[in-house]
Design a protein around this nucleic acid. Structure first.
Length: 745
DNA sequence: ACTGATTCTTTTTTT
DNA sequence: AAGAATCAGT
């Protein structure tokens, strides 16, 4: 035991060895939170003789769950298989699989990811003829998920106007459709599991007496429903140990509710909160910057993070003319960091939104640096993989309409809009899934026996079949053939018989996709090694729940690219935080949301505290986003960091390169872009109708009346010269150079 | 029914 | 800018 606790500070030891039943640990960034959690579990097992069987640990990501398992295995020489460790979603999935009948689900129920969910919603809306522009599928999706996160079924949602009445109607229709198909979305996993426990006292008693110790990581990110689920699972006897940091709550958009910390204290009679305030990760300056910034938020729990490290370097700020320049700056710095001996994998390049990764990837790629992007286009979301998974889903549960629609005519087998329409009509009539309708249709036509076995025997005689018949036959024979096969064999069989392998083999540009399909086989091999349940259904659940975590298992040294959200819980030697511009970080959409800005600030706080030794903050005056050039002002968060902690770096090149870009996107005449560039190049005098060293596009100006702004365009010369300026607070205006009152340029 | 082309939409963060 | 949805021609 002394070995377990060695190297921990007093507060950490106190948390690990706590005697009281339940506890709230307020753990700042980098304060050894994960270590405390894993050590406590090991301590419980080793010193208090708690069986792993009696422990349940909830983490925020699957990755964290994996790591926790690994760490505990390292500390203890015993088998911890019986311990339940995972995300809320994966634990609920596990519970629902075990009690699918009590939960009212088919054994092979499938899980919808967000895009699947959206597809179902679109179908449902179309079905009940909602063409209304007023109700976008996204809105409906948002509404449904919010209701579910609050634990509400369609009929429980309070209706207070026409809008909610409609939404509830859609919610109910959606619910019905999902039940028909035997599919559940992410929120549904939680809600079902919660309802299972609250309705079935025997089960609730069973689980709450089994899980004597419940430990929760990232507690600040739990939703209302998740908290209720926990309370139910704990019952009155279990001990609940939660760890969280209100300053790192960045998932409010997904229903996270910091208020749970307060409720927890009340519900579980917590007398004293344990605070872990010593940061072991970052140098002083970085921590000072983060602390000062976060102090701008209101209603924080009292906490003061400190470090025994020295100040370290100043945070570096880079002002880039364009996003391209920002990227090349980052590339250069990364290179020199690497020469200094920093491993690539210890360098994190962070951004607010996934769309920003493009430019960065491009620059890194051209510099032949190896990098890895997290999030973005996830492996299991690629279309060829989705096609393959859809076939697998049909094998597991043919009532999955999403899956059926995806593959019924892919590869093409002569089923067009007409046949599909018929199929959908007849499904609607019968009130069943598309598959049931298709089955009915093909049996009716054939007028022969229904057993799939007889069909298979008649394989040669019955071919060639057409349209829906051939599809039904295909799926039925696949289901039949696969019933006895192992998971890798099933996938192999499916790839061949579905025609997917052939299709991508013969298609131009199919090579890449074929590679991904091979990767899928790889993923399955890894999955089988790592998990206890190697059934098809279990794998499909895994694919839905861990879409984000799968990565080519190469462990090569690569630069880490990700959003700030996915960086939570990680640490790097050096952190690049790019795109620090108003409208991007903080994001435009946050301005109008209640508490939006504070959440953005916490996000910034998370970003800063990822760094051990070095932070680079960069922003671009102009940025290409969604096909348009945007001119932004530096993020307010830069101003919230004390000046004496910052070192401003200057751009290396000044105007040479910028000229082309500004012409490219802003030249207002009807001259073709190419022409204008040529013209500008041939005569530099003509270029500067307005002295561009002064009135450069993207340049920051201060106006007497309108305040701070950025030049977005200019035209005319001499007395007629005008500039278009986008002001922070007054919008975009054309101003005459002769009369405009600029205080500084 | 299939294809290629054109128009429309999306565009924060994630299990 | 990139994808999805829709349309027109074969």
């Amino acid at each position: 035991m002394s070995l377990l606790l060695s190297g921990l500070n007093n507060e950490q030891v106190k948390a690990v060895t706590l005697e009281e039943k339940s506890a709230l640990v307020l753990a700042g960034a980098g304060s050894g939170k994960t270590r405390v959690l894993t050590t406590r579990i090991s301590y419980l097992i080793q010193s208090r003789q708690v069986s792993p069987h009696n422990i349940l640990a909830v983490t925020f990501t699957n990755k964290a769950a994996k790591e926790m398992r690994a760490r505990i295995s390292n500390m203890l020489p015993i088998n911890i298989q019986g311990m339940w460790v995972g995300t809320f979603h994966s634990l609920c999935n596990r519970m629902l699989r075990a009690h699918y009948q009590d939960a009212g689900l088919p054994q092979a129920f499938q899980i919808l990811d967000s895009s699947d969910q959206l597809a179902v919603i679109k179908r449902v809306l179309k079905d009940i003829n909602v063409d209304n522009e007023k109700f976008t599928p996204r809105q409906v999706q948002w509404f449904i998920n919010n209701a579910k996160d609050d634990g509400l079924r369609g009929l429980q949602v309070e209706v207070y106007d026409d809008f909610t009445r409609k939404m509830v109607e859609f919610y109910l229709a959606y619910e019905q459709q999902c039940n028909k198909e035997g599919v559940v979305d992410f929120s549904e996993l939680l809600l079902r599991s919660y309802e299972l426990l609250i309705r079935n006292e025997v089960l609730q008693k069973h689980y709450s007496s089994r899980f004597i110790h419940i430990l929760v990581d990232e507690f600040q990110d739990t939703s209302q429903l998740q908290y209720k689920w926990l309370r139910l699972l704990a019952g009155s006897e279990s001990s609940v140990f939660v760890v969280g940091d209100d300053d790192q709550s960045i998932y409010a958009f997904r229903g996270a509710n910091t208020g749970n910390m307060k409720e927890f204290k009340r519900d579980f009679h917590i007398s004293g909160v344990i605070k872990l305030e010593q940061n072991y990760r970052s140098h002083g300056n970085i921590l000072d910057a983060a602390n000062t910034l976060i102090r701008n938020n209101n209603g924080r729990l009292d906490k003061n993070l400190w470090t025994a490290e020295d100040h370290g370097e100043l945070l570096k700020v880079y002002n880039a003319p364009t996003d391209l320049d920002e990227a090349s700056f980052i590339v250069n710095e990364v290179k020199s960091l690497h020469t200094e001996g920093v491993r690539f994998s210890k360098i994190g390049v962070l951004y607010r939104s996934n769309a920003q990764s493009r430019v960065l990837e491009h620059a890194l790629f051209n510099a032949s640096l190896s990098y890895r992007v997290y999030g973005g286009l996830r492996f299991f979301e690629r279309q060829e993989v989705k096609h393959a998974l859809a076939y697998l889903r049909m094998i597991a549960n043919p009532d999955d309409d999403n899956a059926l629609l995806r593959i019924i005519n892919f590869p093409t087998r002569g089923i067009g809009a007409r046949s599909l329409e018929q199929l959908q009509d007849s499904a609607k009539e019968q009130g069943g899934s598309l598959w049931q309708a298709a089955l009915e249709m093909s049996c009716g036509k054939g007028g022969k026996g229904r057993s799939s076995a007889s069909r298979i025997e008649n394989k040669n005689i019955d071919a060639p079949r057409k349209g829906i018949n051939s599809f039904v036959f295909l799926i039925e024979s696949m289901r039949h053939d696969c019933s006895e096969l192992s998971l890798p064999e099933i996938v192999d069989h499916m790839l061949v018989h579905s025609g997917l392998a052939d299709y991508y083999n013969n298609h131009r540009e199919g090579a890449n996709r074929l590679e991904n399909l091979n990767e899928l086989i790889n993923a399955i091999t890894i999955y089988i090694q790592e998990s206890e349940d190697s059934s098809l259904t279990a794998f499909l659940a895994h694919a839905s729940l861990e879409a984000g975590e799968y990565q080519n298992s190469d462990n090569q040294d690569a630069i880490q690219l990700m959003t700030v959200h996915s960086a939570k819980g990680l640490e790097f030697h050096s952190v690049f935080l790019s795109g620090l511009e108003e409208g991007l970080f903080p994001h435009d959409n946050s301005y109008n949301e209640a508490g939006g800005l504070e959440e953005e600030r916490r996000l910034m706080y998370v970003a800063l505290t990822r760094a051990q030794q070095r932070v680079y903050l960069s922003f671009a005056q102009s940025r290409m986003l969604h096909g348009q050039t945007h001119y932004n002002v530096p993020s307010r968060f830069l101003n919230e960091i004390p000046k004496n902690l910052l070192k401003v770096l200057h751009p290396i090149q000044e105007f040479e390169d910028i000229e082309e870009i500004s012409i490219d996107s802003n030249y207002r005449d009807n001259v073709s872009v190419k022409d204008s560039i040529l013209k500008k190049k041939s005569s530099s005098l003509e270029v500067h109708a307005i002295d561009s060293s002064k009135w450069n596009i993207g340049k920051r100006v201060v106006h007497k009346k309108f305040g701070v702004g950025v030049i977005v365009s200019y035209e005319g010369a001499g007395v007629d010269a005008r500039v278009q300026v986008k002001f922070n607070e007054y919008g975009t205006k054309w101003l005459s150079l002769e009369y405009a009152k600029f205080l500084s340029i």
